Amino acid sequence: MKIRTAIFGGSKRTLVWDDLNPSQRLAIYDRGVDVASPDELGDEQRRDILISYRSGDMVAPALTEREALRTMVEEYARAITTKTPALTDGRSGLRVLELLQAASRSLAEGGTMIKLNEGHMA
């Protein structure tokens, strides 16, 4: 059985991408985790909970079905015929690599904030 699902959890929403479900590839859930600062809570509340889980509605936006390779070929053809930079040019690739390297470094350092080289990210 093939499974091609990615789940991205954030503090406000949870996104689920299911590549094998053409009728609902993307689902956005109003789910998250609220972390209260100990300063915001009274003594009694602090003992009870610092983290609360939130669950709410789900939205599945309609996405246009397109074949990925065809979309990329059309984009490059547009860039060539209009003599404008492609959306996914070498600079874009460099930005993606820098982001991935920063994410890997942050993970290796326990989730620390990594400053990006803003000169390359523009």
Rank of each mutant, 00 (worst) to 15 (best):
E40I: 03
A102M: 02
P61N: 04
R4Y: 09
R4V: 05
A79P: 00
S11P: 07
S55A: 13
G93K: 10
M121G: 06
N117C: 02
D48A: 13
G32S: 05
D43M: 08
L26G: 02
V33N: 04
A62F: 05
L20S: 05
L69H: 10
A68V: 09
S106K: 00
T112E: 13
I3A: 14
A122L: 12
M113H: 14
P22I: 03
P38N: 03
A86L: 02
I3H: 11
A108L: 05
T88R: 06
G110T: 02
R4F: 08
D18P: 02
L87T: 06
V35G: 01
Q45G: 08
T64M: 10
L94E: 15
L26C: 04
E109Q: 13
I28L: 08
Y76P: 00
I80T: 06
S106Q: 03
A77M: 08
T82V: 01
R47K: 13
G93E: 13
R13Y: 15
S104Q: 13
I51Y: 09
E44K: 11
E75N: 06
G119R: 08
R46T: 06
A102F: 00
A79D: 01
I49W: 14
V33I: 15
I80A: 14
L116V: 03
R25F: 01
Q45T: 06
R78V: 01
S92N: 11
D39C: 06
G111D: 04
A122Q: 15
R78K: 11
E74Q: 10
N21F: 00
L99S: 07
L99K: 12
E98S: 10
T84L: 06
S23Y: 04
K2W: 10
N21S: 07
Y53W: 11
I51L: 10
R25S: 09
S52W: 03
P61A: 02
A86C: 06
L100V: 14
I114K: 04
A68T: 10
L69Y: 11
E74L: 09
G9P: 07
D18S: 06
L94A: 08
K115S: 12
R31L: 07
A79H: 02
G10Q: 05
R13N: 15
S55K: 15
I114A: 03
K83M: 08
A6E: 11
E44I: 12
H120L: 15
G111Y: 05
R66Q: 12
G111R: 03
K12R: 15
A108G: 11
T81A: 11
L94Y: 08
G42C: 04
Y29F: 14
P61I: 01
V35W: 07
R105T: 14
D30R: 14
S106L: 02
G56P: 01
I28G: 03
E98T: 05
G111M: 05
E109S: 12
L99Q: 14
R54V: 11
T88Q: 06
S37A: 14
T112Y: 00
